[in-house]
Amino acid sequence: MNNVIVVGCGRVGSQLANMLSDNGSNVCVIDRNADAFANLGRSFNGSTVQGVGFDEETLIKAGVEDCDVMAAVTQSDNTNLMVAEVGNRLFDVPHVIARLYNPDHERAYMQLGIDYVCGTSLVAEDVFSKIVSGHGSHLDTFGEFEVLRFSLDLTWMDRRTIRVSELERDHDIRIIAFERGDGSASSIPTRDSILYNGDSVLACVRHELIESFSKYIQD
Rank of each mutant, 00 (worst) to 15 (best):
V69M: 06
N23Q: 11
D77M: 03
V6L: 06
N78A: 13
M19D: 11
V73D: 00
S165D: 15
V69P: 01
R160F: 13
G134T: 06
E57G: 15
E56L: 10
S47T: 14
D182H: 02
S214N: 08
T190I: 03
G51Q: 03
V201M: 04
E65T: 14
D172I: 05
V83T: 06
I176C: 09
V86S: 03
N2M: 13
F91I: 01
R169A: 15
E211S: 13
G13Q: 07
T74C: 07
E57H: 14
E106F: 04
D170W: 10
N45F: 06
F178P: 00
S186V: 04
T120D: 14
S121C: 02
G136E: 07
G46L: 00
Y101R: 09
L16V: 07
H95N: 12
S151L: 10
T120Q: 13
G8H: 01
S137V: 15
E211R: 14
A71I: 07
C204P: 00
A72H: 08
T79E: 14
T155I: 05
L139D: 06
N18Y: 06
V69N: 04
A71K: 02
L81K: 03
W156P: 00
A84C: 14
V29G: 07
A124R: 01
T161H: 14
L16I: 06
N18V: 08
G113H: 12
V93K: 03
L40R: 04
F213T: 03
V205P: 01
G134Q: 07
E57T: 09
V86M: 11
E56K: 11
V64T: 04
L16Y: 07
R32E: 15
G53A: 08
C9Y: 10
T58W: 04
T190K: 15
R163V: 15
G53I: 03
F54C: 04
R89L: 12
R11C: 05
K61C: 12
V7C: 11
E166D: 15
S47G: 05
D104F: 09
